[in-house]
């Protein structure tokens, strides 16, 4: 009797232990995702009950010049950020993959910006890039005698690019660590065999390192793209999306609409556009994966 009882209840025990995680997943992920989808068809100021609008938010969005500008900014940012962190991250990883004395120090140094508060980074770079008082323009003017250095974050044509560079500087350490792990996974026998066959450094990198690193590269590509679409803090601390809306990306526009303009419905529709874009890009990446990612040696 008792034995049967235990056996019967036992089957539920694992679920009991999983319950906190499941509650978290449903309560803080799935339900908000579904809720946001519903809200994207409403006008919702949070403090007043939502009003059904049908597709009006999406119509407004597609007919708004501001939205297309923001979308363009988002892609420009991604086009700088993703190749930036991946190429520089790989180069750095190859460099710190050497067995030199004190290499741990350099690895730590390059990783430091990743663990530094983005708010602090935004502020310090804000000072560096300040047109009148910043060190960058001081150097440009006095060492390189540039007569009219740009206003960087104050210039609507440059602000977004400047932010993207700072973001690359901040995040590249993370990509470096991932690549480094990938590099150390490659068995040394391949290199030794290639050396005996007379392959030079470049050939070894091109023919062995890159193909064998491809699973890592794929992973880094996916997370870098997602990372770039989600960037918020650096924009908030450096330009607040300005001048005008020249450095406003989709993620930042979602924040503005939701928490400054109290337009939760419109912000939700922006969030769904973001979801569709990131989802599509990720799907495309997975589709082309088999063409270049090699899991077997």
């Amino acid at each position: 009797m008792i034995y049967d009882h235990i056996m019967r209840t036992r089957r539920y025990v694992p679920y009991l232990f999983l319950l906190p995680a499941i509650i978290g997943l449903f309560g803080f992920r799935l339900i908000p995702i579904v809720w946001a989808f519903l809200m994207s068809f409403t006008r919702w100021s949070v403090y007043a009950p939502p009003q059904w609008l049908g597709l009006a938010n999406y119509k407004e969005l597609f007919s708004s010049e501001l939205f297309w500008g923001i979308l363009k900014n988002t892609f420009v940012y991604t086009a700088i950020y993703v190749p930036g962190v991946m190429i520089i991250g790989l180069i750095l990883a190859v460099l710190v993959n050497n067995r030199l004395r004190g290499i741990a120090f350099f690895r730590g140094l390059l990783f430091a910006p990743v663990v530094t508060s983005a708010v602090a980074i935004g502020m310090v770079w804000g000072w560096i890039l300040s047109p009148r008082f910043g060190i960058l323009n001081h150097v440009l003017e006095h060492w390189f005698s540039v007569s009219n250095p740009p206003a960087w974050l104050g210039d609507r044509n440059i602000a977004l690019i400047a932010i993207a560079f700072v973001a690359v500087w901040q995040r590249v350490g993370y990509q470096m660590v991932l690549f480094l792990a990938g590099l150390q996974d490659i068995p040394t026998v391949f290199y030794e065999a290639a050396k005996i066959d007379g392959a030079n450094r470049w050939q070894r990198f091109w023919k062995i390192t890159l193909p064998l690193l491809s699973p890592t590269t794929f992973f880094v590509l996916i997370i870098s793209i997602i990372d770039s679409f989600r960037n918020f803090t650096i924009i908030y601390t450096m330009t607040r999306g300005g001048p005008g809306s020249s450095s406003t990306t989709l993620a930042y526009a979602i924040y503005q609409n939701a928490f400054i303009f109290s337009r939760m419905g419109y912000a939700s529709s922006l969030a769904y556009i973001l979801l569709i874009i990131v989802g599509t890009i990720t799907l495309i990446n997975f589709y082309f994966k088999k063409k270049w990612v090699k899991y077997k040696y």
Binding site: R240, G241, Q256
Partner: peptide
């Protein structure tokens, strides 16, 4: 806050328009 351009949206609205002029 939306049309005037305030806080985290300071570059927008009327605020941003006047900045454009003085820039």
């Amino acid at each position: 806050s939306e049309w005037r351009g305030y806080g985290g949206a300071e570059g927008m609205g009327l605020n941003g328009a006047i900045d454009k002029v003085i820039n």
